[in-house]
């Protein structure tokens, strides 16, 4: 692990040159995998994340089927080569099981699960390269992948982290800010109604800081939502072939 930088904010700018309320460079692409029903690829700064959606399809084992609604299954997984310092041990860990669960809970409120009784929708999120904020980028990718797969949804889900470094509220933390900052709070939002479907927190905020952080997160999610819409529109208008 590298040394802690002396200061994380110099002259009001962050180490990577961003303003406190600025996102890292964001790229979203829909429909990148041929075999999946829906897929998306997201790059947010150093994060590279692939999401694939399968279904709705028949749910096996059958005793897990829910008679009146579909089931949403999510798997968040980090590739062994996704982190810098050492090879990550492959396979599920305590951390990835938790992230899978909160991802599922962040996505569930938007999906019309009751339209597909007994079926299952599988969402796979693969982190190819990690650089802080992978769970939020994973949710962003998964939501685009579900829309790309034609799964009926009430809204997209946009997600970003906010935090506090050197006493300043910042948007979309990078690796150093995540490791050495004072607080980190991933947020997922349903942009249409501004409802929050994921909120976790690590560190401390005062109530006033918390309010500021939420507001900054909402702004960030709105920017991400625009990029998500653009990605979907781009894929399909390319398919429309200049109509």
């Amino acid at each position: 692990m590298e040394e802690k930088p002396e200061k994380l904010i110099v002259n009001g700018k962050r180490l990577d040159g961003r303003e406190p309320g600025e996102l890292r460079p964001l790229k979203i692409q829909a429909g990148v995998l041929k075999r999946a029903d829906g897929s998306a690829y997201v790059e947010l700064g150093g994060n590279k994340i692939l999401a694939a959606v399968y279904g709705p399809r028949e749910f096996h084992p059958r005793h897990l089927q829910q008679p009146t609604t579909a089931t949403l299954r999510c798997r968040y997984n980090m590739a062994p080569f996704s982190v810098s310092d050492e090879r990550k041990r492959p396979g599920p860990s305590r951390r990835s099981i938790e992230i899978s669960k909160v991802t599922r809970e962040a996505l569930e409120p938007v999906v019309f699960l009751e339209q597909y009784p007994r079926a299952v929708i599988d969402v796979f999120i693969e982190v190819l390269q990690a650089d802080a904020g992978t769970r939020t980028a994973g949710i962003t990718a998964a939501s685009v992948a579900m829309a790309d797969g034609g799964i009926p949804m009430r809204d997209l889900v946009a997600s970003v982290a906010v935090g506090k470094v050197d006493g300043t509220i910042v948007l979309d933390l990078n690796k150093y800010e995540d490791q050495y900052g004072e607080a980190d709070m991933p947020i997922a939002m349903l942009p249409r109604k501004k409802e929050i479907s994921l909120m976790q927190m690590d560190g401390n905020f005062t109530p006033e800081e918390f309010r500021q952080a939420i507001e900054l997160a909402i702004l960030g999610c709105e920017k991400i939502y625009e990029a998500q819409r653009e990605a979907l529109e781009k894929k399909y208008s390319a398919n429309l072939g200049g109509e």
Binding site: V110, R154, L156
Partner: peptide, 9 residues
């Protein structure tokens, strides 16, 4: 008419 929409639009 014939406009492209995304979920939640």
């Amino acid at each position: 008419r014939r406009e492209l929409v995304v979920p939640g639009e």
